[in-house]
Design a binder for these strands. Sequence first.
RNA 1: CGGGGUGUAGCGCAGUUGGCUAGCGCGCGUCGUUCGGGACGACGAGGUCGGAAGUUCGAGUCUUCUCACCCCGACCA
Length: 427
Amino acid sequence: MKQSKLFVKSRKEVQSEETSINAQLLLKAGFVDKLMAGVYTYLPLGLRVLDKIKNIVREEMNKAGGQEILMPALTPKEIWVQTNRWENFDALFKLESNNHEYALGATHEEVVTPLLQKFTFSYKDLPQAVYQIQTKFRNEARSKSGLLRGREFSMKDMYSFHTDEEDLNRYYAEMEKVYEKVWERLGIGHITVKTYASGGAFSKYSHEYQTFAPVGEDLVYYCPKCKVAINKEIIEDLEHACPECHGKDLEEKTSIEVGNIFKLMTKFSGACNFNYTAADGSVKPVIMGCYGIGPSRLMGTLAEIYNDANGLIWPKAVAPFQIHLLSLGDRDESVQNEIMSAAQKLYEQLTAAGWEVLWDDRVQASNGEKFKDSDLFGIPLRLVLGKQSLQAQSVEVKLRNQENGESLPISEDLEKKLKEIYNNYAV
RNA sequence: CGGGGUGUAGCGCAGUUGGCUAGCGCGCGUCGUUCGGGACGACGAGGUCGGAAGUUCGAGUCUUCUCACCCCGACCA
């Protein structure tokens, strides 16, 4: 993509009130725009990041046998009354029109349970797992910290349905591995831990996935030996001991909840009378589990963690582009033209080879502006074509997370070299 | 939802004890000069001072109400 055509330029300044790093950087770089508290527009660069996160999540859910569906965001009051959450879920956005009441989906047990009920009759129809990546609405009393806590946000929610608890446990254990794979692919595997949290009425624990970060609004106690954590809310019940090794050597950490998995058991199937016929002819309730991941919150988390004084530093799995190609301006018009045509050629060559390239082809922008934008955007590989490199028939290559780059000759080999450098990119 | 803070040009901000035609920087437009880390000059466009009511000869500035946003706390199924 050519940067001269890019909708939304970066800003030099953003409101000083907005203190969270992710909000500062994402607004400054023009990745998102805020419409109101906790509600954001994803602009072209930001949307590419969000979509990449969603796709990683999607791929892993598919591998785990999940089938993607898309449920409505607009839901009737009645289904929430049935599960007793019309009154009890106080962040529910409610609306009324023509004497009918509705809720905007804050979570989708109320939709998915009757949905599966329609098509599930026998143990032969189980197990089953469906998921969606949907916009969720929660009327948070206090949305905050940029993308970390929105009132409208993206969520992947998967629901699994089983004949019995053993099968749920099997799948639940499988999902733990799947989740770890997702964190790894997103570049936060080393700072994201399974965290014991309250399990509600039906199971002892649920699990959250908490990513360590200074801005995190959660407080967890980390057991370095088991590499798990315990949420503050249940630490008293556990007498400050790790539930796995019972050790008391725990580190207090602030963290961001990026996902959770929860054994719902019969909480919703019971409320909806969702039963199946077993092999022996008996009628039994369906056992459920649910598994959430917040892609928009993850985008905020990554921005929060991966940055420096100059801007964002995206992990390559989610960066909006792989290569940021800068063609510098020069006072000499013929040199300038040469730079532009060399850049054009390189841009076409790399794009044809499958690289995702953002080419800063602006002639009116100053060179300083181009460098600043490049740092701000956080694209892994930066290629610079200027007078110096042109004379040497080379291009300057630098990784976003490294101080110095190197000069590579523009030749048949260039692409292979770039691949090497790119593959060595740390995150 | 409790506490604190902030609303002035597209963006970031200044505006003194109430006083004349409301300023600065960025950005934007035209022209020219620039060109390896957010260049420079000249000229120019751009404002219901968040909203409502009030006090006053006079309100961006004072009072009351209200809305929005940010931060701390509570909440987070």
